[in-house]
Amino acid sequence: MKTSGRLDGLLFVLFFIIGLIACIWYLIRHDPGFLPLASEHGGFIDNLFVVTLIITGIVFILTHVLLVFFTFRYKGNGNGEKAFWYPDNKKLEIIWTIVPAVIIVALIVWGQVGWAKIFHTNPPDDAFVVEIVGEQFAWNIRYPGEDGEFGRTNPELITRTNPIGLDRTDPAAEDDIVVLNELRVPLDHPVLLKLRSKDVIHSVFLPNFRVKMDAVPGMTTTFSFKPTVEGEFDLLCAELCGLGHYRMRGYVVVQPMEELEVWLSEQREMN
């Protein structure tokens, strides 16, 4: 059995080096990282991401250097010459079981600390509560109004002008404000999103805020975060929901509480 192969080893080396250079060039040129951060907890996610990237990056380069080097270096001539007899080495194997395990457990523990902060801490009582009701293919955003309470809804009451089926006989519903696709949240103030869906599963994705949570019909899911940057951002759907999934666009506006209250009262008059 004769096989050529010097070229293949060389190609592996070249491919690895050129690929690495191309990646670095692209990273410098286009900076394709996360979108600019605009929430408090997002900083943790970004850090965890970067650290994981560094660790996995080292492992990636190390293993690939070995892989590429071995393919380049240990080409056989195919004449039946023997290779080095090395069937196992317990010590080595234990090392490369334990070391990754330790690193990984550390990552998990660190990740869980942040996870607990995001999900296991109750939002403060004065959190700004907004309800988002997904439908094909728009977001109904509801603000509770002055009483701070959401009125009853009933899907039987849904009409074109009452998209979430608000029960107007409920006193709590009187001052509820429902707008389409326009999510306004206060700056530097905790926000609690309550997510529901009218039809299929949607997922509220606020990339700048590192927020993502499914809106599942038949139940209410929540996500709380604190916006830290004023401005206008995107709201996307991240769970396949039908043919308009790709353009289920909402707008997030972060503004100081006072401005937000002015806007809310304007909306109330229009409603």
Binding site: D8, L67, F70, T71, Y74, K75, G76, G78, K82, Y86
Partner: peptide
């Protein structure tokens, strides 16, 4: 792979 006699089929 280490110290093998690699055949690139």
């Amino acid at each position: 792979l280490w110290r093998g006699k690699l055949h690139f089929t």
